[in-house]
Design a binder for these strands. Structure first.
Lengths: 337, 337
DNA sequence: CTGAAAGCGCTTACAG
DNA sequence: CTGAAAGCGCTTACAG
């Protein structure tokens, strides 16, 4: 708790002024070789590190980004982690630290960390169609990037998977293989009702594309309660004995699917073609053998941070806020036929 | 990015001095009712929030805790999340924010956030027997709490499950049911070799207790690569045809066990008794039906933060650093017989 | 190439 | 009960 050396200590030891030390540190003006040497010797000898708070006060930059997320009981937490990893990793590479905010009251938390100047900008995860954090964000006048597509993208750098295109690609893939009837398991109903737009963007596009291509497709809500997943999947399959293909747009269901289908004695793709939507990392963690569209958490998290940092590093720059929907990429693992 | 109002603005509007506003905010001296009212009216009207950096500079307290963790490829990331949730949630409840640090170079990252005064204290997750972050921590002179038991606990508040007691309880449980031969799947070998002490604390205690109780017990390393888990579990069971009980001390293996055993046609507990070590949350997320010892990430994360905050709030207090090994608690789900 | 000084926005002894 | 002023540790125009 004892304070470390300050820039004044360095200045004294090096026999220069504080400003010279500061400039040596920032490189914002040239320092004679010999002076430079004395300064850095002193820094090393004293073990000096600039105080972040004092620097932030003087520069109005904290070099910290806020990462706002919530662990919703109906979201599959393990999948969230990949966004967190991508965001923190990219931020560090760009010289920023991450303030992790998981408060249940997202708007209040956002106001707190922006108004108090704790962060230079924020990344919002899991943005809802009509996200209550966005009005707060607009008042905060801080750069922000989101993962997830809100209704109003004004002033935000927005990154998300193109869920509509993903659904169409998946339906086309199954149609081209000749499947006449398909069952879709969507995210749990609460995800729809609270405004998780990815849920209906995928489902609605799948339904439309199926109609267009002359395929029968029925959508069913996935279970929020993991223990009910086996029964629900079973019920869905029982209800559609003619269905030869299953689309899973729900991480929790996907993670359990090998066990569930195994228990039912359903062979993939012999008895049933299966295709899903998740990340390669997710597939690896749970050894999921299914053909899937990459949900790209790494790319999305990284892009969001890079856009945010670019904006922070070029304040008042000419760049308009951007909304980028990442094109889906289907990885064929042979689970469809 | 436009700065918000400062304490000087509030003082002007309320017609008082800056110090009076500050004292009204902190409550550190009494303010007359009328003055108080004018101050809080001004605060509300202006939408004032104190600047965190300036406050930190003046008070030498940032109200931020560092959370140091790493996502090791051989750790099952979903299980880490529960510690993160417990830590952030508890910190917020105590008025602290969390700086999430996942740098691969843990010691350097720790030095950076402590020397620069970004955090008041740190929580270390997944502490190794001979953790390279600890020497840095000792030089940093900042309070710290860990989850995980290092060899040298000097100066640290340490929280961990009593893995030895857990192993003994599990072996006793199986022995009391009459199982003569038991197989144990441990964490992957790299966890042992890099010093994840929980791995051998559990294994060694299990081996000893089995010997003491006259049970045959063989330990096998779990797989770091999820895709190899089914084969490895299969090989282990094949190698011990007489074994009637399986202890799983590896999250990745536990998560896949229903699918793996299902595929082999092994009924639990009919053909095989299964008992594991994980959290109730983990069991819920993956619908694991096995009897288990609670690994208590919520309790451990919460306790670590509470100890740390207590120390920060009582600097120079009389409390000696504490090492607390949480007693295991077995939840019988009927998967042993 | 370098220094003295003001300023960032708070808190807190010191005085009254 | 309240205020003027010093100080926290930096950065950066301003001057030389």
């Amino acid at each position: 708790m004892r304070m470390g050396p300050t820039i004044a200590d360095v200045a004294r030891v090096a026999g220069v002024s504080r400003s010279t030390v500061s400039y040596a540190l920032s490189g914002k003006r040239s320092i004679s070789g010999e002076t430079r040497q004395r300064i850095f010797d002193a820094i090393r000898d004293l073990g000096f590190t600039a105080n972040a708070g004092a620097r932030a006060l003087a520069t109005r930059r904290t070099m910290v980004l806020g990462l706002l997320m919530q662990f919703e009981p109906d979201e599959f937490a393990p999948a969230m982690l990949q966004y967190v990893m991508a965001v923190t990793e990219t931020a560090r590479r760009k010289g920023y630290d991450i303030l992790l905010v998981t408060d249940h009251d997202g708007p209040a938390a956002l106001r707190r960390i922006t108004d108090s100047g704790m962060v230079d900008g924020v990344v919002l995860l899991d943005v809802l169609h009509d996200d209550p954090r966005l009005p707060v964000l607009r008042e905060a006048h801080r750069p922000a990037a989101t993962v997830g597509l809100p209704a109003d993208t004004e002033g935000l750098d927005v990154y998300d998977l193109d869920f509509g295109a993903a659904a169409r690609q998946i339906v086309d893939h199954l149609r081209d293989l000749g499947h006449p009837e398909i069952v879709l398991i969507t995210p749990p109903r609460p995800v729809f009702s609270r405004g998780g737009a990815y849920s209906w963007r995928f489902r609605d596009a799948a339904v439309e594309q199926a109609a267009r291509r002359g395929v029968r497709l029925t959508a069913h809500y996935g279970e929020a309660d993991p223990s009910r997943i086996p029964a629900t999947v079973g019920a869905v399959l029982d209800a559609h004995p003619q269905a030869t293909a299953l689309i899973v747009h729900n991480d929790a269901t996907a993670a359990m699917l090998p066990a569930v289908l195994g228990a039912r004695g359903v062979a993939v793709p012999g008895d049933l073609s299966v295709i899903s939507l998740y990340s390669a990392d997710f597939a690896r963690t749970f050894s999921l053998p299914y053909t899937f569209v990459e949900s790209a958490p790494g790319l999305l998290g990284r892009s969001a941070v890079e856009a945010l940092v670019h904006r922070l590093d070029h304040p008042g720059g000419p760049d308009r806020p951007v909304t980028r929907l990442v094109a889906p990429h289907l990885i064929d693992r042979g689970s469809t036929r």
